[in-house]
Design a protein around this nucleic acid. Structure first.
Lengths: 344, 344
DNA sequence: AAAATAAATGTAATCGATTGCCATGCGTGT
DNA sequence: ACACGCATGGCAATCGATTACATTTATTTT
């Protein structure tokens, strides 16, 4: 009754075969004969053996782990995506290391650490704002592990990317408001430089011009996806000489902050202004008023991102390159109480 | 220009010393002479060497990683705690593996996997509802890695635990309502069997009896910490023949769902009923009405939990046992709009 | 100045699994 | 009968670091 874990040696002894045979029986069952396979399996059972991943990784030069770079774990939007990645990854036998790029030095340094220590077989990046030199293939004079972007992305990296149709989603939002008779539609932006900010802004502008609606520059307010940004946007909206009758906010959190702050000033949604958010976070369905928004299947995108990464890893093992394709998941309009027809 | 990573051999060659010396220079700088230390550091610099964690872990039988068991990554309450753990852990050179026990088999099996593969040096458990046999020290005939509970816990495991003062928090909540003149105060429970549920219920009951306030059993409604549970509780509250004038909900999410559903039926908070939540999640400050609640310093508890775990790990290395002490972090009452004095 | 002690460094075994190469034995075709 | 091919399984090198032990060198003690 040794306190240590049984090793492959113990199994070999119990099965009366060599360690090589045990290893093969476990990794390539068809490489050994029916009878030895049975013997080995019995021995494994009997000893309670389970492979030491560290040793395997050292030998195989893989890790069975992937790293996910998240801009901010605390953000419920991402946590749902993480759950999707987790679930797909653990089914495929991978563990998931989560790396919060909000931590000061974490993002860049840890990424390099991970890559260099071969601590991860692949990388899913949810943060499009990382310094681009990290993605240049020659960056450290060595290969980057298979990498895919999810949700956010960077142009011109040639990396595969799984994302929502942000432009399409924004157009749905604006289209909905326009269909309700709104003509003066404002927009609150995400953080500057963010690809989602740009895609949603582009969708907004396109939809407006498609309908021949004028956009006034003072209707486009700055933001950064936080509740507080929504609050600030509300104050600026209140100060506008001519207020838009409807607002499309680049995400739900800002929409909540926006509505909350307006309420404090006696301005009611949707009575005085219609509001559309983006993301369909949990609380959207229960906010007061409930929030009209653009839903993105977040768990799904996590699953899809891992699937793509897994394919990349396997392709690379086979020596085949893989083209960096873009996979666009559709967004969906969810109509709730925060929007209503403009009465004239 | 080899594509492979430099190994300790390469450094040894460049510094003209043995690998043993390189290893020592890096792990115990004071064990080698000033001059060789310099030579080694230069060689490291020059070759771009960085230790291969897998090899180190195999040899040292440690991993430099800790596992955190979370009931549900998607829950913003936990994600904030995770951020605290992450930050403290990465400062101490540990990586954090997050394991979502919501995944069907993940919790138990993965835990065993991790432990058995020595994939983790320690364990932080945020989920008090795991099967208790996992904690029996003899469980698998082998030692459990250093483990601490955070937030949730299990009685009688003898494991250290870092948690909020839930009983005290609940008493604050009830005390606040009583101070506003409420005498009929109801409570919505968390999920059955959960330790937080019990602690908060106990605090509620204690506070009520301390003030000589009667508790009617129909005022205590079932719940499970979800938005929807709050909605259901609201429906049951509406159906009560004699409605309490104030409600203390076991968490903020349920409080939001509760308020939201009441609003839909024309019942307004705090006009018709005062509501107190628990947790002070982000949205609490911006819900309509803003939510009176009990704040728990969540990032802090993450940091404290890691600190405790780290101490356990180091104590064990030194061969010293460590007593499973309980660390209680204070909770704080945050008064906002969802409560107001009872007018009689 | 010799002996004893301490400090610095090297040699080689070790962690636990994987895998290239080789040996064995069996079946088959001629 | 003989050679050949194929399935099977063992031997031993290997992954890259750590560390017990041995050895050399420096320092202190007497």
């Amino acid at each position: 009754m040794t306190t240590a874990f049984p090793t492959i040696q113990d199994v070999a002894r119990a099965a009366q075969v060599s360690t090589a045979t045990v290893s093969r029986a476990l990794s390539f069952p068809e490489r050994v004969s029916e009878t030895t396979r049975m013997r080995v399996f019995d021995a494994v059972e009997q000893t309670g053996y389970s492979v030491n991943q560290t040793a395997r990784n050292l030998r195989r030069k893989t890790t069975g782990a992937i790293v996910v770079l998240v801009p901010n774990i605390g953000n419920p939007f991402f946590s749902r995506i993480l759950a999707g990645i987790e679930s797909a990854a653990s089914q495929a036998g991978y563990t998931v290391l989560i790396c919060d790029t909000l931590q000061p030095r974490a993002g860049e340094d840890m990424l390099l650490e991970y890559m260099r220590n071969n601590r991860a077989d692949g990388l899913i990046i949810l943060d499009g704002s990382l310094p681009s030199r990290l993605f240049e293939s020659g960056a450290q004079g060595r290969r980057r592990p298979p990498t895919v972007f999810a949700c956010e992305w960077r142009e011109a990296t040639g990396l595969p990317s799984v994302r929502f149709d942000n432009v399409g989603g924004a157009r749905l939002a604006v289209g909905h408001l326009a269909a309700l008779g709104h003509e003066q539609i404002g927009h609150v932006l995400g953080p500057p430089g963010n690809v989602l900010t740009e895609a949603r802004r582009a969708g907004y502008l396109t939809a407006m011009s498609e309908r021949g609606l004028a956009v006034r520059s003072e209707w486009i307010l700055n933001g950064d996806f936080s509740l507080d940004a929504g609050v600030l946007a509300a104050r600026r909206w209140l100060a506008l000489p001519a207020r838009p009758t409807a607002m499309f906010l680049a995400n739900d959190e800002m929409a909540c902050g926006f509505i909350s702050e307006l309420h404090r000033s006696g301005v009611e949604v949707p009575r005085d202004v219609s509001v559309v958010g983006f993301d369909d976070i949990d609380i959207a369905e229960r906010f007061i008023p409930t929030l009209t928004t653009i839903r993105q299947p977040r768990t799904e995108i996590g699953v899809a991102a891992f699937a793509e990464l897994h394919a990349c890893i396997q392709d690379r093992e086979k020596g085949m390159p893989r083209t960096g394709e873009v996979r666009l998941l559709p967004a969906e309009l969810i109509v709730r109480e925060s929007t209503k027809a403009l009465k004239r």
